[in-house]
Design a protein around this nucleic acid. Structure first.
Lengths: 233, 233
DNA sequence: ACGCGAATACTCTGATCGGAGTATTCGTTT
DNA sequence: AAACGAATACTCCGATCAGAGTATTCGCGT
């Protein structure tokens, strides 16, 4: 009963077995052929442990085990009524309820002052070019899908990716430019800190005598009366 | 040497120790106070194993171990020069290089035809209302931050979240409406399938006699000459 | 006829994670 | 003054994961 509904691969497995009984390897090739691998992480280690766990919970049952020649056994599984219910319920939950996720970029942005401003801007601009590349390859795939008259319904997940990548690119491009121009609030302080560091001033020294090293606005921030519970850095 | 740079919590630990030496629990409260917990998953189990691994790789060193009264020991760690390098390098990589991620919604969308169209649309509309709620709470936090004159630099990660949530909401709203109106390619077929299923027609039956159950356009799709290698469903 | 790479179909193992559990102390209430 | 909850500072363990490794067979070229 522990940590059910953690790995979406289990949901994909249920989806396959609802179509017809299959053995695990067949599930993996089916998912691959249909391009689900792009949206759902698939590796063998997880596949077999997920299948075992589904079986343990009664959502699927082993139908039969056979071997062709002296190859490893192939166990075919079928979905149970409970499995169908679980599939529908789980999918409904995923669609209706946003969950907190932790994209790598969000983590990186939260530590942004750990690099110098111009360096950060450079790296973000580099990211923009890579995102543009990714977008053109996604759009090439869409053009191909259109030529094959593949219904949009079967590539919504890919449309979603495009929407998200576009949003990320626009945000990052804007951010890089705001750092360059200094219009991102706090950049002046950030820039000054790295300037001083380059001149060999230690961080303690800077904070000990803010009025000596920073302009009025920033210095005020560094020695706040703190009537709100706020804090710098 | 295995799987370094997997858990971004290790990056946050380095960031803390670059400021000054701390013991693990202090790192956790520091991250929490600064709201990094919103962007970087933090739980004790991972924290202590990540610290151990950083130490094993020579990126941090145990500085001293003491105990106050009969409480558990507190081991203070400091970052090494190699640790500073690793921090800068890793952060640079995270900023400059997009990595493939697997958001739950993308997985769910790739299995969308597993639910009936109107049900799917209903669930997506529900999601839109929840995303709107999330947005208003994020914007309330921003208004608060502005009143406290918190520089924008220290909340870029939150601005990023807002941008992504807005993009997701707009996409999902659009998708739900396209399903309702039928303007999403393939919806007619999808709708008809669930109509027939409600009437008790089995899936095999439908696909055996496409011309009997579907209109011309769809039937043509279900028995393709397949000159491209494409396949339905 | 035989060698070789690709495909088939898993198995195994060490790492990592999540989250519940533990033991102590401090501050506040009753 | 005793009791209680909150905070401190971890420890532990089962579950999960990633991905390298294994063994067999098939098809194809020479």
């Amino acid at each position: 009963m522990t940590r059910r509904r953690s790995n979406p691969l289990a949901l994909a497995v249920l989806a396959c077995l609802i179509e017809r009984p299959m053995h695990p390897y067949e599930i993996s090739t089916t998912l691959r052929e249909r391009g689900k691998e792009q949206s759902i992480k698939l590796n063998y280690g997880s596949l077999y442990s997920v299948v075992e766990s589904l079986q343990k919970h009664g959502l699927i049952v082993a139908q039969d085990t056979q071997r062709a020649g002296r190859r490893p056994e192939r166990t075919t599984y079928a979905v149970t009524p409970a499995g169908v219910d679980e599939f529908e319920d789980w999918l409904a939950e995923l669609l209706s309820t946003p969950v907190k996720e932790y994209p790598a970029l969000e983590a990186a942005l939260s530590l942004l002052p750990g690099l110098a401003p111009d360096e950060a801007a450079r790296l973000l601009e580099l990211r923009v070019t890579k995102l543009d590349l990714e977008l053109s390859s996604l759009e090439a795939m869409h053009a191909m899908a259109d030529r094959m008259a593949l219904p949009q319904l079967l590539r919504v997940e890919s449309d979603y990716r495009v929407a998200m990548v576009v949003a990320e690119r626009d945000f990052v491009r804007r951010l890089a430019s705001d750092i360059r121009s200094g219009s991102l609030g706090g950049t002046a302080f950030w820039r000054r800190m790295y300037e001083l560091r380059d001149q060999g001033v230690s961080t303690e020294e800077m904070f000990a005598k803010p009025r000596e090293y920073f302009d009025e606005e920033v210095a005020a921030w560094l020695a706040p009366k703190d009537h709100t519970g706020a804090e710098p850095s």
